[in-house]
Nucleic acid binder design. Structure first.
Lengths: 237, 237
DNA sequence: CAGTGGTCTAGACCACCGC
DNA sequence: CGGTGGTCTAGACCACTGC
């Protein structure tokens, strides 16, 4: 069941796309709009609030609401959390090969700090090289607490997206991440493997992923070739 | 005048910090909470919605609301738009020197695309080198349409933050930006100047800044030494 | 001043969940 | 089933804006 304020939001959205509400136009007042949609003012306001949050409306107190120039949405925005497979797909590439290794290891200091573990605790470490047309395009190291996912790995070997594996086998939904954007040092061995040409610069994301309760579940080093992947960020005040 | 729902939000926020509402705790039901604050249910819900958006509460339909582990906020999060001076300050550095040049130039293709101009139109180009302890730490190229800011520059020379200059002299408030995160090529001349040591890797942000109506006002190339500045991004589904 | 959006209320119905 | 949050209403008062 889709609530009414979402339907109204979509309707207004379509009117802005179609040109019925062009950029710069002033919307009718709240009471007028509410009447025209046959809903209460608060319901209408809920719809308008959505559009405001999406950056499509500007509200000026005591004046009115105005349609503003929509920002063309970027496909591979870094704000959106997704699996590497999704990123490769979004870049229009075909994932031709994945080399993978899974092992149990002792927790290092950096992992412990980010996963709320103690140094030396058991962790699962997954390393993956992704190739497109036989060229390596990405290298990932994933570290997970053994206590959370150890049993699941014994039950079924990992295949495909780690995110969906965690959902299906562990009922863990990764919903957010804090990522540090890093230019790896010249001598970084993992980065070196991806620098297949002078143009192939490499970006590193050091990421801590959280579940719905903001518990850290996955720490990862993700190396991406910057000549293959583009990274966009939306910034706001 | 601070609205009631903000006051209630802050009150709940303090209760979570103080430990009165520890992580994992279930909040009283909405009617109970509303009664205890002496407000209507909708007002209380407005407060709760704020906390949910800030990632401090998890709502489970038909069950209740729960306090979740707060994510330690990162000081220099890239999501937050700020001037370079602010970034330097946030990194605990002292800006010791700024070298600056301002000129009128013809618009190049990349600038035209991002600023909704035509190639060859007049633009103002500002270049700045920022130093801390005599070391260069950042290099910026800012491009602005002459039509928007030309007069202001004739009136008063730029000094200090470009953002505040635009606000005070042009009544233009920059509120958002779309930024591409790039690892500059080895041969990039601007990046080279910042690579003062093997550890001094360099990150480039190509940014288009928008005003309150989402009009593009400023296009910039911002080079930062990654051994001096850290870049964090919050990602979510 | 009149019109706008921002806040707030008291009450209602519903979908969802755990028992 | 009873309790939870999600939606919705009709009406009210206020602060802000432009005239």
């Amino acid at each position: 069941m889709i609530p009414n304020y979402i339907l109204i939001k979509d309707k207004l959205d379509r009117m802005m796309v179609s040109g019925e509400l062009p950029v710069g136009a002033k919307l009718p007042s709240e009471p007028e709009l509410a009447a025209s949609f046959g809903v209460s003012r608060e319901t209408l306001r809920a719809a308008l609030k959505q559009l405001e949050q999406e950056g499509k409306l500007r509200c000026r107190n005591g004046v009115g609401r105005f349609v503003i120039r929509p920002l063309h949405s970027i496909p591979s925005s870094i704000d959106k959390l997704g699996s590497t497979s999704e990123m490769i797909h979004a870049s229009g590439l075909q994932e031709t090969e994945v080399q993978e290794s899974v092992r149990i290891d002792r927790c290092q200091q950096e992992w412990a700090e980010n996963l709320s573990l103690e140094e030396g605790d058991d962790v699962i470490v997954i390393e993956r090289v992704r190739k497109a047309n036989d060229d390596p395009v990405s290298f990932n190291i994933n570290v997970l607490p053994h206590g959370i996912v150890g049993m699941a790995f014994a039950r079924r070997p990992l295949q495909g997206s780690l995110m969906t594996f965690l959902e299906e086998e562990c009922s863990i939904r990764l919903v957010s991440a804090m990522s540090e954007v890093i230019v790896p040092a010249a001598k970084d061995l993992h980065a070196k493997k991806l620098r297949v040409s002078p143009e192939a610069t490499v970006l590193l994301l050091k990421q801590t992923h959280f579940d719905e309760d903001n518990r850290p579940v996955l720490f990862s080093y993700d190396y991406y070739r910057n000549d293959v992947f583009k990274f966009w960020v939306r910034r706001s005040r």
